[in-house]
Simulated scan of single mutants.
Amino acid sequence: MTTTALTPEFTIQRTFKAPIDRVFDAWADPVQMARWSGPEGTQVTVLSGNIATGATLHARSDAADGAVLYTLCDYRTVDRPDHLVYDQSFADAEGNVVPCPFFDAWPETLRTDIRFEAVEGGTRITLRWIPVDPTAEQAESFIAAMDSMTGGWSGSFDKLDSYLAA
């Protein structure tokens, strides 16, 4: 990954009322991750792979409006229970990386870097989303979408909160 003045970073934090091991496992176990990830009304299905350092996970997301998206996640770091890093791209049904289907200029790959920290009453996560080698146009598109990303991640975190409380 090349970090330059053109490489923006999105950061969001959230504290969950659950122990660090439980929160980490909700991210690092494909079965659990599929139960809460994605926007409200989205059903995630893991098609292949697993979550481990060096592993790749291919998943399908079926949205409430009928839209279907595929993602590919290449796991760089799975360090239980403190740290999780993966590179995420849009994919096709066969697991090939494809351009973003809804933005003309969007980074091909986003690095997701999550730190888990035990705090009084639960676990705080700090999630960083960083485009990998974006063009100037892709970086501008990423910056322009940050408010939307806050809403999207907040919705996913609300689902994670409900999942952890169950």
Rank of each mutant, 00 (worst) to 15 (best):
I20H: 03
V44A: 14
T45H: 03
S48Q: 09
R60L: 10
A64R: 09
V46C: 11
G66T: 00
V78M: 07
A64F: 08
L69E: 09
G38R: 01
A59S: 15
P81A: 06
Y75A: 09
W36G: 02
G66C: 00
R80D: 11
R22Q: 15
A59F: 12
A67C: 07
P81R: 11
G41N: 02
R76C: 11
L57H: 05
V31N: 11
L72T: 01
C73D: 14
A26V: 01
A67S: 15
W27I: 01
R22M: 14
G38H: 00
V46G: 05
Q32L: 12
D21V: 07
R60G: 04
V23K: 05
P30Y: 03
Y75H: 12
L57A: 06
D65M: 06
V78H: 05
D79T: 07
S37L: 12
G38I: 02
L72A: 06
S37T: 14
A26F: 07
L47A: 05
R80F: 11
A63W: 11
F24T: 01
N50W: 07
R76S: 11
P30F: 05
S61G: 08
L72Y: 02
F24S: 00
A55F: 08
I51L: 05
T71M: 12
V23Q: 00
G38W: 01
M33E: 08
G54P: 03
A52S: 03
C73R: 15
E40D: 15
S61W: 10
T42K: 09
A64M: 10
I20G: 06
S61C: 10
D25G: 01
D25Q: 12
A55C: 08
A52M: 08
G41S: 02
R80C: 14
D62S: 13
Q43P: 00
D74P: 06
E40V: 13
